[in-house]
């Protein structure tokens, strides 16, 4: 199972790297989104995949999964949600002001 998870993380990271290196604003934002998913999945894998009931009050099982990484990932997802919402609005405004979403044209020169 760990191998499969790591492979998924690898695919996500490579796709997001590709997207981050493209020239379109929106693709860069999507690349960051995928990278955050990869990081969260990696967290889940690194913290140890265990068999066991969900760590809830009502369950009466012999073993429970570790709740800490799940809580941390949920926090990270919420933060990612906020950052993504902001990034989308910011990239939209940038596109509106500059009339282009091509990062080559948004580079700017050294002395302005």
């Amino acid at each position: 199972m760990e191998i499969l998870m790591i492979l998924t993380v690898g695919v996500l990271v490579s796709v997001s790297t590709y997207l981050l290196l493209t020239k379109s604003l929106l693709r860069v934002v999507l690349g960051l989104l995928l990278l955050s998913h990869a990081a969260h999945l990696l967290f889940l894998t690194l913290a140890g995949l265990k068999e066991g009931a969900p760590p809830l009050l009502g369950e009466e099982a012999a073993s429970y999964a570790d709740p800490l990484p799940q809580a941390l990932i949920l926090t990270a997802i919420v933060i990612g949600f906020g950052v993504t919402a902001f990034l989308l609005v910011l990239s939209y405004r940038t596109y509106k002001e500059h009339k282009t979403d091509d990062l080559d044209q948004l580079r700017g020169s050294a002395d302005e």
């Binding site: 604003l25 990270a76 902001f86 910011l90 948004l106």
Partner: peptide
């Protein structure tokens, strides 16, 4: 706007590495 966009992308990219580092440490 242009410079802010770059700053946001770079910072967010760094934050992802923060998560990965915390994961390794944990």
């Amino acid at each position: 706007l242009r410079e802010s966009f770059k700053y946001v992308v770079i910072s967010t990219f760094g934050s992802m590495f923060f998560i990965i580092a915390v994961a390794l440490l944990y």
